[in-house]
């Protein structure tokens, strides 16, 4: 029971980071990153290979740039990898004017190609078998029991989430965040008021990619394994659904979405006692997630917590200050 709660909570933290990453890219900036999962997965792979140490010849797994770095470095390397991939793809894809659904298709295609190349080429990240035995942070030092370590990881990932949350809120409420929303609503108009739309789009894509890489790195540190099965392109759809269910451009909504979609309907059913033929519960899980998406999009198109009204502090102060004394109504006695 304790393991069930702690594992679900770690998943909640990781999927919340995922939803925030996509929320920044799609909810705030309107970039349709349908290949989102690639950024998470490169973060996971890089964190894994930089924690595993150099591959032993004749060992059971092969991978590139193996190193055994101390605790925070694999996480940082994973984050940087996500950012670097986002910069590369952003420069190629986002600098062109493409119809939004075609942009989604290109991103999807990138995800499919990446999965195919990684599963085929075993020299890269051990092919379809994936990487395993990734050391968990502090586990060698602290000598905790399995359960206690799980709870330690819960606290650790929640602390990281809180830091990311405040960072994101600060970004989204700043004038830079307003520029993002302006670009989302009308990129031509935004460029006319002096916003460098191209640069903004790439920078926000890179920040989102970094958070995605970070979430992947955290996930692989927790799970200890990562393989192409874990990041089929459908996973991006799940993150999109959690952003939509929670509410686009609302970071608190993204937490609710991440809790409802991937955690309650995606992860928890695997703890249920086995029923029917093997694989039935996984099938039902997908049916429920798809139905959840279609119904929320019908009933609450803006999500559970819709985007709030953002007003710059200076404007708000001006609105609240009594500029003129209220005009006395005609006929009233002074």
């Amino acid at each position: 029971m304790s393991a069930f709660v702690s594992i679900s909570l770690v998943y909640l933290a990781i999927y919340t980071l995922s939803a925030w990453s996509l929320n920044l890219q799609y909810g705030y900036a309107g970039i349709i990153n349908f290949g989102w999962i690639v950024f998470q997965s490169i973060g996971a792979y890089v964190a894994a290979t930089t924690a595993l140490g150099s591959p032993t010849s004749g060992g059971f797994q092969t991978y590139i740039f193996g190193a055994r770095l101390g605790f925070p470095l694999p996480l940082i390397m994973g984050t940087l990898a996500g950012a670097a991939l986002a910069l590369l793809l952003g420069l190629i894809i986002l600098t062109r004017r493409i119809r939004p659904d075609f942009q989604a298709i290109i991103m999807l295609v990138v995800a499919i190609i990446a999965a195919e190349v990684v599963s085929t080429n075993t020299a890269l990240f051990n092919g379809a078998n994936g990487l395993s035995n990734v050391p968990q942070p502090f586990n060698g030092v602290m000598h905790l029991s399995y359960n206690n370590y799980q709870w330690f990881f819960v606290a650790f990932s929640f602390a990281l989430c809180i830091i990311v949350y405040f960072g994101l809120e600060w970004i989204c409420r700043s004038s830079w965040g307003r520029a993002l929303r302006a670009m989302r609503e009308d990129d031509i108009l935004a460029s006319h008021v002096g916003i460098n739309v191209q640069a903004l789009r790439i920078v926000v894509f890179v920040i989102g990619g970094a958070i995605a890489g970070f979430s992947g790195a955290l996930l692989v540190e927790f799970l200890g394994t990562w393989s192409p099965d874990a990041w089929s392109f459908v996973e991006s759809f799940v993150v999109f659904v959690s952003v939509y269910v929670g509410g686009r451009a609302n970071n608190r909504g993204a937490i609710i979405g991440a809790f409802l979609v991937p955690v309650v309907f995606g992860t928890m059913p695997s703890f249920l006692p086995e029923f029917g033929y093997p694989g039935l519960s996984a099938n039902l899980e997908w049916l429920v997630i798809a139905a959840l998406w279609l119904t929320t999009f019908y009933l609450r198109p803006a999500g559970i917590l819709p985007e709030g009204r953002f007003i710059a502090r200076r404007t708000r102060a001006r609105e609240q200050a009594p500029v003129m004394p209220p005009i006395a109504k005609q006929g009233s006695v002074a």
Binding site: R97, I98, P100, F102, I106, V109, V110, D186, I188
Partner: peptide, 16 residues
Amino acid sequence: AVVLLARPKSVQGGLV
């Protein structure tokens, strides 16, 4: 991907 990126005419439109 190359076709979509290199043939903006057939796929052009507002990004947003």
